[in-house]
Design a protein around this nucleic acid. Structure first.
Lengths: 198, 198
DNA sequence: TCCAACTCCAACGGTGTGTTTGTAATACCG
DNA sequence: CGGTATTACAAACACACCGTTGGAGTTGGA
């Protein structure tokens, strides 16, 4: 077998993603990462320097994937509902990113990649503001608040899954419940955004 | 000075609330709790058994306070809007509870006080279901999902304050912004719940 | 053959939980 | 007042875990 340094690096990164998302930075041991990667513990240090550098690399990588994969196409009611639905789908399909961001947010300190993330969201807010001027969205709502609320609707399920289970009585593994949750998210997003309501 | 065993117990519990909310269960050391309480480390064990028992007591206590402070009085549209607003107020005034719940969700395992919390939420779901039958709420929505979404709307701001700041451009200390957020929450709750939508 | 990637194992320093030992201060009771 | 149980503090302890480094040996490629 040939040396596969890229493969070793990737296996370590993948294992770190799983472990970090599951247990957070403090809760994860380098031994666990190495074991999951099927690689010696010492390899981690020669490839990435130390545990913290690996954490930051994993987070940056996942943020890039999110940016590459999430987009807001239009500003009609259907687009907004689908934006909420797609966000829900992404978090449901990639629960690790949401967990990484939660760990990061709780841990404190400055969020990684803050500048790029800010412009990313501001772009969405600007589009919503434009839609308001066209009368597609209710003009009584702050577009920034609306964007924020849509993300809340989509992400809250993964954020406090134990609360979701207590209230709905169904776990996140239930595919029927998951589909119903998605429909609710889309519908609720439309209701919040549509104009002319008391 | 007289012995103040209730005071000692309370100081330990208050210190544990602050430390647990700030650093989570794993990130908090019993030494830090004891130091913040101005009490010897050993006292914690004689009063509460161990670190985990103290964690569960703190969480149950804060949940009781929330339940005692935010009630759902009726099932009209105004009541539902005010329920969301009051929940928002509570989380804004007591950001620690949201962080505790988030830590709990990430940590995994079964939630503390699960039985009581479940019945508490089911009661709210039942009231919403009754309101649906009376036509006060839209009957196309799952009442459990609606309850969950209202909590999401109210709590999300404190849960990811860094995201809220990136999107709205204002921090949580801005009293004007906070008032505007509250109005948005109340209005969005009414929009989601009110009947007669396409 | 020589080098690079890799494994295995041991060790070091630091930190954390939970327990114990000894001692001082305080309340209660006769 | 004197005796005793309770509360508290301080310090040290045993035990375990973790991040990181180093060395000695093995495997694969040029």
């Amino acid at each position: 077998m040939a040396w596969d340094t890229e493969g070793t690096r990737r296996r370590l990164r993948d294992a770190a993603l799983v472990e970090f998302a599951e247990r957070g930075f403090d809760g994860t041991t380098v031994a666990a990462i190495a074991q999951r990667a099927g690689v010696n513990k010492e390899r981690l240090y020669s490839y990435f320097g130390d545990k913290k550098a690996l954490w930051e690399l994993v987070l940056a990588t996942e943020l890039e994937r999110l940016a590459a994969s999430v987009g807001l196409t239009g500003v009609g009611l259907n687009d907004i509902g689908e934006f909420a639905g797609a966000t829900f789908d992404y978090h449901a399909a990639h629960p690790q990113l949401g967990r990484l961001l939660q760990w990061e947010g709780l841990q404190g300190g400055q969020p990684a990649d803050a500048a790029q993330r800010t412009t990313h969201y501001r772009d969405k807010v600007d589009r919503f503001a434009a839609a308001q001027r066209e009368g597609v969205l209710d003009d009584g709502l702050d577009p920034a608040h609306l964007v924020f609320a849509l993300i809340a609707l989509a992400a809250w399920w993964q954020t406090v899954p134990q609360l979701a289970e207590m209230i709905t009585g169904a776990g996140a593994n239930d595919t029927h419940e998951r589909a119903r949750r998605r429909r609710f998210v889309v519908e609720a997003a439309r209701r919040m955004a549509s104009p002319g309501r008391a």
